[in-house]
Simulated scan of single mutants.
Amino acid sequence: MTAMDPGVPTYGGLSPDTGKAPAKIAGMFDAIAGRYDLLNHLLSGGQDLYWRWRAVRRLRLTGTERVLDLCTGTCDVARTMVRRRLARRVLGIDFSAEMLKVGQRKLRGEGRAGVIPLVRGDAMRLPAASGSMDAVTIAFGIRNVQDASVALAEVARVLKPGGRLAILEFSTPQQPAVRAAYLWYFRNVLPRLGGLVSRHGEAYAYLPASVESFTPPAQFVAQLEAAGLTQCEAVPLTFGVVYLYVARRAA
Rank of each mutant, 00 (worst) to 15 (best):
Y36F: 13
A251N: 13
R58S: 08
L126Q: 03
A31C: 04
V115R: 06
G46C: 14
E233I: 00
Q104I: 05
A205N: 05
C232R: 01
C71D: 07
K101E: 14
V115F: 06
M4V: 01
V197I: 13
V82N: 09
S171H: 12
K106Q: 04
A151C: 07
R108D: 02
V115C: 05
R120V: 11
T74W: 07
D122M: 03
K101W: 10
V90Q: 14
R108I: 00
T18I: 11
S96K: 08
M81W: 13
R248I: 12
A26H: 10
T215W: 09
R143V: 08
R120E: 12
P176K: 00
F29D: 10
G131K: 07
D30A: 10
T80D: 13
T215I: 15
L42V: 10
V158T: 06
G7K: 09
L49W: 15
L237N: 02
V158R: 03
V150Q: 07
D37A: 13
A218H: 00
V56D: 09
P16W: 03
V67P: 06
L118F: 09
M124C: 00
Q219W: 06
P208Q: 02
R164M: 08
Y204G: 01
A33V: 05
A151L: 03
Y50I: 03
A203R: 02
A128I: 04
S149A: 07
V221Y: 01
L39P: 08
M1V: 12
R112Q: 01
R60I: 02
A156R: 10
G34S: 13
K24Q: 03
T72V: 14
V155Y: 12
G12I: 03
R84D: 14
R58K: 12
